[in-house]
Design a protein around this nucleic acid. Sequence first.
DNA 1: GACAGAATCCGGACCGTGGTCCGCTTCGAT
DNA 2: ATCGAAGCGGACCACGGTCCGGATTCTGTC
Lengths: 229, 229
Amino acid sequence: MLYADFMSAAPPPAPTPREPVEPLEPLELLQLGTDADEPCLRADAARNRARLLEAAARLVAERGAEGITMEEVAAAARVGKGTVFRRFGDRTGLLTALLDHSEKKFQAAFLSGPPPLGPGAPPVERLRAFGLATLRRTAEELELQLAAEPEPGRRFTNAPRRVRRHHVSLLLREAVPGADCDLLAHTLMAQLDPALIHHLIRQCGMPLERLEAAWVDLVDRVTCSASPG
Amino acid sequence: MLYADFMSAAPPPAPTPREPVEPLEPLELLQLGTDADEPCLRADAARNRARLLEAAARLVAERGAEGITMEEVAAAARVGKGTVFRRFGDRTGLLTALLDHSEKKFQAAFLSGPPPLGPGAPPVERLRAFGLATLRRTAEELELQLAAEPEPGRRFTNAPRRVRRHHVSLLLREAVPGADCDLLAHTLMAQLDPALIHHLIRQCGMPLERLEAAWVDLVDRVTCSASPG
DNA sequence: GACAGAATCCGGACCGTGGTCCGCTTCGAT
DNA sequence: ATCGAAGCGGACCACGGTCCGGATTCTGTC
């Protein structure tokens, strides 16, 4: 079973935190809800959540992430449609929850795993490793990650992506102290955007290796410390 | 009247050119339909098109691009709903058409206008000017450009954006002959993505000047010719 | 000019899907 | 056993997008 920890809860719908985006600072707080800090769902709620994720995973495996309907998922899980939306907020919420397991594993790897991805290696090497790992993971889960992409207005408030971006930003601060690292982090992250990867690989037919080479090259260029002006 | 050339036709719906994306080479062919090469709509069709664009522009000005419905636009233009979709394909098609006028002006500026944006200046300077001009234009039309953003799967097949990207790619080829300029162009373009600009300016409260500085800095870094891999 | 046939276009009824709402049920703490 | 809170579910709504019978415009011919 790929999505094993069905009992874990993704952050609840979030009561409409519109336009202004809170700055978010301490990295630890950024991690997706670890299996501990959960709202502790009621028994029936937890059971339904698990059923929904299982049903969704099955349907996605069968017919692809684009081809499934919220109503179908609800029906397959023997659950009302309202339940799906209450639990996961919206379509992207459900899809994101499907990626949650893999996401947590990845976060653990670059936050506290062995170098060069985790702490211990020099920042530039960590950056290289981070990009390569992301590229490979995204290439694997491409379809799901693409379908989980929120609408443009929320693309950058996406929790997992903010964690990753923040991580890149911190590494950049070490590597190129003079630069505007927050913005540079956005630049680097853009190279790892699922939509871009999908375009290049699926639509343009580029081999993954070329993206990997481009990433390494980009890190070198950005890291080369040009005019800090 | 801001969107004056209502008689111009955006490229028709395009009969479902799915997954494989044709490579597109000669830059001239990439320009959006100039007012000449149009399908030459029937009289009533052209009239309805004009009415629709006018109505859409008015409604967008009144209530914002997010707040309008295709049905509303149709009603305001005294036209059937089907007509809207036949003419513009889908929602993003209509919104894109609203941006068409400004887009053409911009294309003319960087393809054949005066330097440093147009030909005549050294490529790196043209790159800087291109980014700054794009940033300013996007900041102005931010809401509309954001709403006109297609779904993730088509983001990079968007015609105007491909033209701009190709242009950046050509400039890069001159500036850093050794690099993978097609991918580098994607990197640079990402910095000018409406969704990102919206996020940084509207949600994070960054001043436009910081984005401009970051662009110039990024061009320098990328152009600095690091390891050609 | 008038006309006929063909190509194009119109419009609004229709459909599927994402998302909401609210009266009722179930849970679990006391 | 009781009671409030949390959860449920499916009817309901809005909106994007499709479809096709009928109206309108264009083109070539006389």
